[in-house]
């Protein structure tokens, strides 16, 4: 089929599949999307006049959510490995794990946002609030969309046969998922760790986070 762009990778001029090329072009574009968000956060670093800034971070808590997201990436790649070896059962198991870990990450983020607001940092408080909530909020939205996408694949896959086309469906959501993961790698490294290093009068999370 001339137009079934999903199956026939070898008929394209480059030998690359259309949809895979599309997702890579999208990710290339998304690099500038998140790059601009992170760059803006860094440009405004240290300019806030009032309120909390990096001192509000709880590195242990965010380390835990970072760990969850990294593990979801591992689950994702195992799902792909499953369907590539023709095992839909394995794929579905790891897709579900990925989606659940993704939801846990979003849960961590909602918890974090809630705590920050409790402590008086909102997007309106200062520049740090505006850039931080916008940047991490967009990242969280990407994760949430990914979770929705993963569950769609999970349920749709009950009607699949293992084949190149369906394995591509998993590969593409995987590329998106890993990309969202490496964006978090950058945010965690640059915004959280480098950002808060030196502001360690608050290296441990406040007691209130644990109901105290």
């Amino acid at each position: 089929m001339y137009f079934d762009t999903t199956v026939d990778a070898h008929r394209t001029s480059t030998g690359l599949n259309n949809r895979k090329l599309l997702i890579w072009a999208f990710l290339g574009s998304d690099v500038l999307f998140f790059g601009t968000l992170i760059a803006t956060h860094l440009l405004y670093r240290g300019r806030s006049l009032v309120g909390h800034t990096e001192d509000i971070f709880s590195i242990p808590v965010t380390s835990a959510s970072t760990f969850i997201l990294l593990m979801s990436s591992l689950a994702m790649v195992l799902a792909l490995s499953g369907i590539q070896r023709g095992n839909l059962q394995t794929m579905r198991f790891w897709i579900a794990i990925t989606a659940i870990f993704g939801s846990i990450f979003v849960g961590f983020q909602m918890f974090e946002f809630h705590e920050f607001v409790q402590e008086g940092l909102t997007p309106r408080t200062n520049l740090f609030g505006s850039t931080f909530f916008t940047m991490t909020g967009f990242h969280g939205a990407h994760v949430a969309i990914g979770v929705l996408w993963l569950w769609s694949i999970f349920f749709a896959s009950f009607r699949w046969s293992a084949g190149e086309r369906n394995s591509l469906n998993v590969e593409i959501v995987g590329l998106y998922w890993h990309f969202v993961d490496i964006v978090w790698v950058v945010i965690f490294g640059v915004v959280y760790l480098v950002g808060a290093y030196g502001a360690e009068d608050r290296i441990l999370p406040p007691v209130s986070w644990f109901g105290g």
Binding site: L70, F179, G189, L193, V194
Partner: peptide, 18 residues
């Protein structure tokens, strides 16, 4: 060191998982 380790993680995920 933190920047370098972030870069390493970035490259590992992009290189192997992607």
């Amino acid at each position: 060191l933190l920047l370098a380790s972030s870069l390493a993680k970035f490259l590992l995920v992009a290189g192997f998982f992607m």
